[in-house]
Write a protein that binds this DNA or RNA. Sequence first.
DNA 1: GAAAGGAAACGAGACGATCCGTATTGATGG
DNA 2: CCATCAATACGGATCGTCTCGTTTCCTTTC
Lengths: 199, 199
Amino acid sequence: MSNERGPDHSRRKERSRQAILAATRALVAEEEYEKVTVEAIAARAGVGKQTIYRRWPSKSAVVFAALLALSEDADGRSVALPDTGDLEADLKLVMRATVEEFADPAFDRLIRALNTEIANDAALAAEYREKLAQPLEEAKKARLRSAQEAGQLDADADLDLVLEVLYAPLFQRWLHRSGPLTAAYADSLVDATLRAFGP
Amino acid sequence: MSNERGPDHSRRKERSRQAILAATRALVAEEEYEKVTVEAIAARAGVGKQTIYRRWPSKSAVVFAALLALSEDADGRSVALPDTGDLEADLKLVMRATVEEFADPAFDRLIRALNTEIANDAALAAEYREKLAQPLEEAKKARLRSAQEAGQLDADADLDLVLEVLYAPLFQRWLHRSGPLTAAYADSLVDATLRAFGP
DNA sequence: GAAAGGAAACGAGACGATCCGTATTGATGG
DNA sequence: CCATCAATACGGATCGTCTCGTTTCCTTTC
């Protein structure tokens, strides 16, 4: 009666796994990131340190897994951007929502922690791209392809480039705290992108 | 015979200061950033740890000062972008040069370390903006203003936004290692920016 | 079926290693 | 002579490993 190959040793695994990830998310969201220690995670999760290290090889991996699980929960199924047929309106809606996300201090700390771990760990960065960034980008590109077919976007445009021009300025302004993140700013990024890649 | 205000106690100060900054730059350029410790810096510089802490309040500050000094040396005077009258050609020259800079592993590690320190320290980020980013941006904006006067750029364009659309995609692609940094990519960013903000 | 047995996983935390930032000490040089 | 220095000991914190009884659940046995 073996499900896959190791069903017997998944005894109390899932409960503690979830507790560890939840505790990590909570700590990252509410504390300075330097305060987020493995011991604090273990204590908050009511778990021994070894239970953490039995599953993940390092603190970085735990933090990453915690944020990864967050996105998997939130999505449920695959993400999809609104498609009302009006590209400009749809993009402004999404960009304004993104701006508001970054305004949330908890979300801010979460993503900042993620970027810290990623910036100096190429392997983690690759996993981030594969499991978090790529799916989101595919959803965005699907919306852009729809716009290309509707003649609202240059049919020859490189969609990776379009997405970078649209999102990278927002991301950089947030990361470097180099300017205010407002709805007007979100709109102006959409406007600039559509001027650059419009039909 | 006091030069400025503290000349008498600047006996061996400058020599060790330079040695500390040089050692820091060398270590950051050649090692994994986790290996860059204050003790390693002190040993490489032939200096006691206390001599480091006498000058800077933290390791972050030392790393930042080391990179700051680097840019001050390189510049000599204030930076200025080429201005041949051809905005597209000038920008492509600068963007291609930037792409090449990021291709250097030592430069890569340097900037990655800087971003790591900045990402979770708002005070350091502010100093980074004031002393490193702002002067560079001013030089770039000066070139863009010249283009506006020459009618090569929309006179109403927000130059901060123009710079973000131009540079942020390159920065993000480098930071997240999400794609190749080539001369063709540099060119396409200039093309997109000029389509968005051209006359 | 239910009790007994055993092994894997567990919580707790001691431990060694490393690093930060401070304090001390004896040497150096102006 | 005395401020500065290199060297280094030190306390505090953290990481990741290791150990130790305990808990939980699967298997075996009756």
